[in-house]
C-alpha cells in the first residue's frame, strides 16, 4: 500500500501539472512556445499514465478493490480531492508565463533528482519508468531554466514578474522535500534537496534573481490530500465526463 501511494503521488503530480500547462495550448505568447509548452504537457501526461498504469496493476494484484478493476482512468477520474497526493505546487493556477516557467523549473529539477534515485532502486518497473521519464525531464530543466534566465535578465517588466512569481511559488517548494511516510528508504529527500538548491541557486543567479532569504514558512499537505481551494475546481473540470456518465467508455 505504501508503494502504491508513493507511485500515485508521482502520477498525480505529473497529471495535475500537465492539466495546468495544457491551459496554454492555443494561448501561448508565440506559436513556437505554444508548441514547446504543449510538448512538455504531453511528456508529463505520458509520465502520469505510466505511473497510473503501474499503480493500477499493483492495486489489482493486491486485491484491495474486489470487483472493481483499477485502471489509469479510474485512478485519474474517480478519486476525490482528498485522495489525490500531488504536491500543492502542481495545482496552483498557471499564472503568467513567468509563473509557468518558474514552476516548471522548480518541479523539473526536483524530478531530475528523484528519478535519478528511482533509477537505482529495487523496483524494476519503477526504475524503467524513471529512466524513460528522465530523458524528458532533462529537456524540461533546460527549457525552463533558459526561460527563467531570459525573463529574470530580460526587461524591467519581465524581471519584476519573475520576482513576483518567485515570491508566490517559493513557499510551495518545501513540500517536495518533506517525507509523507510513503517513500521507501531508497529515497533520500535530503540529498535531492541539496542538489536542487544548488542548481536553482545558480540559475537564479544567472537570472539576476535572488533566492528568498530568511526562514520562510513552507506550505504542505498535498501529499496527504489536504489541497488548496484550486484543486476542487481543477478536478471538477477534469473529471466531469467520467462523473456524469459513470457507465460509459470513451
Amino acid at each position: 500500500m505504501q508503494q502504491i501511494n508513493f507511485i500515485l503521488s508521482l502520477a498525480d503530480a505529473n497529471l495535475i501539472l500537465s492539466q495546468r500547462n495544457a491551459e496554454w495550448c492555443g494561448h501561448g505568447p508565440v506559436l513556437e512556445q505554444d508548441i514547446a509548452i504543449t510538448n512538455i504537457t504531453l511528456d508529463l501526461l505520458g509520465q502520469a499514465r505510466n505511473f497510473y498504469q503501474y499503480a493500477a496493476s499493483l492495486v489489482n494484484q493486491s486485491g484491495n478493490m474486489p470487483g472493481n478493476i483499477a485502471t489509469e482512468d479510474s485512478l485519474a477520474y474517480r478519486r476525490t480531492e482528498r485522495e489525490f497526493k500531488n504536491i500543492l505546487l502542481c495545482e496552483l493556477p498557471k499564472g503568467d508565463w513567468a509563473q509557468t516557467v518558474l514552476r516548471q523549473f522548480f518541479y523539473s529539477v526536483f524530478c531530475k533528482g528523484l528519478y535519478t534515485q528511482l533509477l537505482q532502486g529495487q523496483d524494476a518497473q519503477l526504475s524503467a519508468i524513471a529512466e524513460k521519464s528522465l530523458k524528458e525531464v532533462l529537456y524540461h530543466v533546460r527549457w525552463s531554466g533558459e526561460w527563467v534566465m531570459r525573463l529574470g535578465d530580460g526587461t524591467a517588466e519581465s524581471n519584476q514578474r519573475m520576482k513576483q512569481a518567485l515570491q508566490f511559488l517559493w513557499p510551495y517548494t518545501g513540500e517536495m522535500f518533506m517525507p509523507a511516510g510513503f517513500e521507501n528508504n531508497e529515497i533520500d529527500l535530503a540529498s535531492i534537496k541539496k542538489q536542487w538548491l544548488s542548481q536553482v541557486r545558480s540559475i537564479l543567479e544567472e537570472a539576476t534573481l535572488q533566492l528568498p532569504a530568511g526562514n520562510i514558512f513552507m506550505q504542505s499537505g498535498g501529499k496527504k490530500g489536504i489541497h488548496t481551494e484550486h484543486m476542487g475546481f481543477l478536478l471538477a473540470e477534469m473529471q466531469y465526463l467520467q462523473r456524469m456518465y459513470p457507465d460509459a467508455n470513451w
Binding site: 513556437e32 514547446a36 533546460r142 531570459r150
Partner: peptide, 19 residues
Amino acid sequence: LKAADATMAIENARDVYTR
C-alpha cells in the same frame, strides 16, 4: 521559424520539426 536567439532556435526546431 521564429526565435529570439540561436539556442532558442535550435530548441524551437526540436519542438516544431522533430515531434
